[in-house]
Design a protein around this nucleic acid. Sequence first.
RNA 1: GCGGAUGUGGUGAAAUUGGUAGACACGCCAGACUUAGGAUCUGGUGCCGCGAGGCAUGGGGGUUCGAGUCCCUUCAUCCGCACCA
Length: 925
Amino acid sequence: MEYNFRQIERKWQQHWVNTGAYKISNNSTKPKCYVLDMFPYPSGAGLHVGHPLGYIASDIYARFKRLQGFNVLHPMGYDAFGLPAEQYALETGQHPAVTTEQNIKAFRSQLDNIGFSYDWSREIRTSDPSYYKWTQRIFLQLFGSWYNRLAGKAENIETLVRIFEQEGNLHHECPGNRGIRFSADSWNDHNYEQQQEILMEYRLGYLAYAEVNWCPALGTVLANDEVVNGVSERGGHPVIKKKMRQWFLRITEYADRLLEGLEKVQFSEAMKDMQRNWIGKSQGAEIKFNIAGSMESLVVYTTRPDTIFGVDFMVVAPEHELVDAITTDAQMQAVNEYKDYVQSRSERERMADVKLITGCFTGAYAINPFDDRQIPIWISEYVLAGYGTGAIMAVPCGDQRDFNFAQHFNIPITNILGDAFNGQEANPTKEGKLFNSNFITGMDMKPAMEAVIEKIETLGIGKRQINYKMRDAGFSRQRYWGEPFPIVYRNGIPEAMDPADLPLELPHVDHYTPGEDGEGPLANMTQWVNLPAEPGTALRRETSTMPGYAGSSWYFLRYMDPHNNAAFCDRKVSDYWGQVDLYIGGTEHAVGHLLYSRLWTKVLFDLGHIGFDEPYKKLVNQGMITGSSRLVYRVRGTNEFVSAGLREQYDTDELHVDVNMVDGLELDVDAFRSWRPDYATAQFILEDGKYICGTLSEKMSKSKFNTVNPDLLVEKFGADTFRMYEMFLGPVEQSKPWETKGIEGVHRFLKKFWRLYMDEQKGLIVKDAAPTADELKTLHKAIRRIEEDTERLSFNTAVSGFMMCVNDLTDLKCHKKAILEPLVILLTPYAPHVCEELWAAMGNSGSVLDAAFPIFNAEYVTESTKEYPVSVNGKLRTTINISLDATEAEATAIALANDVILKWTEGKDPRKVIFVKGKMINVVI
RNA sequence: GCGGAUGUGGUGAAAUUGGUAGACACGCCAGACUUAGGAUCUGGUGCCGCGAGGCAUGGGGGUUCGAGUCCCUUCAUCCGCACCA
């Protein structure tokens, strides 16, 4: 029998469906293991070979844990809301629900091809009302709670109301507006509307004003990646910033817990660094500067209060509320022109264009509180309104950006660093003494920071302040294809819907055009938006929808209990499954999705809905598979194509060609001719009778014709080969280019593996004879290696471990059941179909999926001698076989007596001999 | 700009703790079997050199008996940056 992978794979995939082999129970005495993939957004483009990399890795791990006796939860679903479906709807008029459904079907069939062990009975879709019902309910939890800083956790908003009634907000600074201070009496005097406004400043899900990318020509709000160079990607219309009232999640209240939580989880240090950076905690001070001739004062945030005597100018964000009030008449026009310019710039551009120095003097001066020096106040785009107080004190001798700014605008620079400042560039050191600095002159910088903070606090002109770069998360999208907010505005005041009335279903619309003034398409559904109400009351629904990360922030919980109608997840069930043991996904989610889902988990934990406050115990980021594009070279102005090696001799244009028409580097010229009508008559200038293509490594995309569809490879080589080849490419976490050519090596391996069991003529050739020591050694070396490598997710080396094992067993002509049966189990996580086939062929009744993982026995692999490498002065000169029992003296004597070593020591006495038992010998002369 | 990652043969890579650099494959070369080969098998294959030998892990420097691995420095490429998901 030959290895007929198509028949085998079809047969067992059907069998596993029929027997419910992947259905997992929530009731088990086995230890649990939760292995999760980041679920995909079902795009219309379908899967390319880059997508399944992480899925295959997690599938192997899940199957491996199952063989080890764990009850493994390994689910899959779809992050089905999103902008592309809505965009597609705008263009084609097809409802996103319809196209999403089609895309999911296509995804599913592609996934099924590869033989994953997902429990599809637990599938979820974020766009399904039975799912987003719970997303809405959890949002109401966020809306209905506040963060009690004294308790260090979220609590129901009612507890805050009780506190206000008794003591006002004396002990609970308002996170949304630090200026708000009130007593119990004044709280109780407030009317409902005023009280709601105050509560809004405390809620974890709250409304506030923020800027969006508004494109007047399209009448819509654009995502950042729909804006290119300040104009809309579609149509190239101007985009400006517009303030809109929007929902936010108060993630900043959790900044410290999100930082601390990183200590408890197994993420890569790089990943933790990215999150820490995103959160961006810094310690410093806020300092108030009076403004000359004005009642206004300017509050700046600085991490370097010790440099206060080096301040030569102030920079205020152009959007800062004070700008209009302090700008002098003489500067008004220049300031307004500058503000118009900044309006057209994206935040990214403002941060990235560091060489472009722009700014405008307001005409106003701040007064240094310690020496009364007058300091000019400028506005510049490099200061962002959202960070700190939106104003900085600029110290050119200590900060390069400030230095560049001062030089550009000819602002004199004060030196407070003595010789440490050379006048050519800023010196940002925190180590050293301060000069020319009034009462802190001569002090070391670090104690000086403390001294300044103490002084400003005594004087009441500032205070110690911790800041975070992280901002509260915008939670509104002016879009259709997302979760509707379960919010009704009663005369403009937002109120939670009754949870019993959820889900609030997304109404069907016929048009996806935006509403007025930047509102989402739902605003056009006046029947749906405006609810019947008593006279004098207006009841209006929220017309924004939630962003993509809403549904994905908690989906890992729903998989545990996907059909529960009474709760998002039964507490007993979430207690059983607990944290995700292994989470695999792309590094592009490093901050966004991961921080949001960590936040939601913490809130749900605080409110008592689940028993753990970090969702993912271990996180692994798979690398991106880049496409390897193939290029052809057309002789300019002709229909003649020249092979890559000869292209220097011609004037050519470089064109992408579909990688599926190229075998390695050789173009299939007939396929190329029939690719497009204008190539039908193409002529080729060949080298050695072949047309050789050029290559280029770049992101996989349809427009580059470098995507490779896994379906084709599965059809040609089988799912087992495909799975193993994806793993064999290299470490999961590393980015690498796709190269189809190598897949044949893995396919050959599986055929060779098959031939250990099956003969083309004789069929099964597995015998019951006793294994030899060599055979046992080969098997157990493989068991040890595969078990270790799989556990540490080093799948590429595990695959080569299998190859070595099969090569050795082939050389040994081993066909013994005692060796081959454990080997089949070992390979099952990687190549489940062929293993199930051979397992059955050997007469086993149950499924190999539930076999017991072979136990490694060290006895079979112990060696008595070692081929020691022997170096002279660190250069390897020979190897000598020496007993592992040999003492240092014995081994050294053998080495020094060796002919080759004698030749290299040239009769000199060795100064030293380094002997590392079991490793090497080095003779130093 | 900030942050992250990666540089090892013609290619993908391996080297788990500082101890034989290139395992395992692809490709290539030579051969066997064959009507045939995109099947299978055998041997070879880092570079330079006839050889002895020398050189080699992006470049430069350092620590060490010994460095792909540790330290310093430098270059290059890729990815993310808050409304793509």
